[in-house]
């Protein structure tokens, strides 16, 4: 009896400890983010106050209203940036996934010489710091005339994401037993049909997880975008953040408001896809 009781107390304590730990962890993760949201709603005089104003005295959507009120009236071309960001991120993610599918399938299903070396080589292209790449890339782009175009940035992001998508997708195909596709082929499917109807659906969650990573990387990328974009033709949201900085001033409140506009779509997407994400990573990369 006694032992049972101490056990129970121990369990309750553990549970409380767990909840407290969870709460603290989530608080640490969320607070800086919430601070940004809050900053976007408060007047500047309160954000940078000393002594600090902990409880907001007035909240308003002024920063958001200003942001959308048009260039010259305190606004920035946020709709253009948003459109560019969406087009560039989505297109580059889709292409990176397609290339990743092809590459991953090749790694998973075929045996060939130098496989590990090629695989590692793909990975290593990611180690190049953006700064070493930015000017030469700019040089090439300038010669091709694709500076400040969606196309240029899309291609750059595809290259950024391909190593990662190949890796993850490779892992997923390894998970799908070979016999399944073979059986389908015996049943009269072509290899192509077998792929789409049997192997692809099974690897879908892996593709979803590769997709969300690729999307988040493209959505938030700054270094290359700042070099390869110039005007509203192709400037993306992270580059647009700098519209709130001038030579001597910085509009932190406006920047926070834009940040919120940036985060909401990413968060929504993650919330929708995250179920696939976890199960995706699980069956994928490790066994690959």
């Amino acid at each position: 009896m006694d032992e049972n009781q101490t056990n129970r107390i121990k369990q309750i304590l553990l549970k409380i400890g767990h909840l407290v730990g969870l709460f603290i962890a989530m608080a640490i993760i969320c607070l800086p983010g919430l601070w940004i949201v809050l900053s976007s709603l408060r007047p500047t005089v309160e954000i940078m106050a000393k002594p600090p104003v902990w409880i907001p005295e007035s909240l308003s959507f002024d920063a958001y209203i200003a942001m959308f009120s048009g260039v010259g009236q305190g606004g920035i071309p946020v709709l253009d940036y948003f459109r560019n960001s969406i087009i560039i991120s989505v297109t580059s993610t889709v292409i990176a996934l397609a290339i990743g599918l092809a590459g991953g399938y090749a790694f998973a299903r075929y045996r060939f010489r130098g496989k590990t070396a090629i695989f590692l080589g793909f990975m290593l292209t990611r180690t190049v710091p953006g700064i070493a790449l930015s000017l030469p890339l700019f040089f090439v782009y300038a010669k091709l005339g694709i500076i400040d175009t969606h196309f240029g940035l899309i291609i750059a992001y595809v290259a950024l994401n391909v190593p990662f998508t190949v890796w993850l997708i490779d892992g997923f195909f390894r998970q799908v037993p070979r016999d399944l596709a073979e059986a389908a082929q015996i049943d009269g499917c072509t290899r192509w049909q077998a792929f789409w109807q049997v192997e692809f659906p099974l690897a879908r969650s892996g593709i979803a997880s590769a997709g969300i990573f690729a999307f988040l990387i493209s959505w938030n990328e700054f270094a290359l975008a700042s070099q390869l974009t110039r005007s509203t033709n192709s400037k993306t949201l992270p580059v647009g953040l700098l519209d709130y900085t001038a030579e001597f001033t910085i509009d932190w409140r406006g920047m926070c408001a834009l940040a919120v506009v940036m985060i909401i779509p990413a968060l929504t997407l993650t919330f929708i896809v995250q179920k696939h994400l976890v199960s995706g990573l699980t069956s994928g990369a490790v066994k690959g």
Partner: peptide, 23 residues
């Protein structure tokens, strides 16, 4: 035709890049 609008330091970087590649 406004082909670029950036803050100062970014614009400086951009103009130097243009000079470098003859663009």
């Amino acid at each position: 035709n406004v082909i670029s609008k950036k803050n100062h330091f970014e614009l400086d970087k951009e103009i130097k890049s243009d000079i470098a590649v003859g663009a």
